[in-house]
């Protein structure tokens, strides 16, 4: 079974907790999901540029003249509104699926008596 993850909502969700650069977003997604979600770099930047085009995030360079410049992304008001809509839709979806799923079966503890 494969669930289609809304990566735009995931990125907006990460940015809702605070401004970050691309690498930090990818790292946050990986760590927060316990390694379940991997936002590939090839997917991350096109997603971020798309969010920027839509006006849902704004980006600005930090330490641009240093040898380690960073492009920091911040969520906008429109981005927060979009996130709310997407989050609502996602929760409705997962709740509907959860109702149809049986409770997880707990594995019996192994070991010799």
């Amino acid at each position: 079974m494969r669930l289609q993850t809304d990566m735009k909502a995931v990125v907006l969700g990460v940015l809702a907790t605070g401004p970050r650069h691309g690498y930090a977003i990818a790292k946050e997604v990986r760590e927060q999901s316990g390694g379940m979600l991997k936002l590939g770099e090839g997917q991350l930047y096109p997603t971020l540029y798309h969010l920027e085009e839509q006006g849902w995030v704004v980006a600005e360079w930090e330490n641009e003249d240093s040898d380690q410049p960073r492009r920091i992304y911040r969520i906008t008001e429109d981005g927060l509104a979009e996130l709310a809509v997407r989050a609502e839709r996602w929760h409705q979806f997962t709740e509907s699926v959860a109702k149809l799923m049986p409770a997880p079966v707990s594995k019996p503890q192994g070991g010799n008596a």
Binding site: H21, G22, Y23, E41, Y45, Q68, P69, R70, R71
Partner: peptide, 13 residues
Amino acid sequence: SRLKEIKAHLKMS
């Protein structure tokens, strides 16, 4: 702009 950002990403990684 894209290359600068990817370079920064690679360096951090």
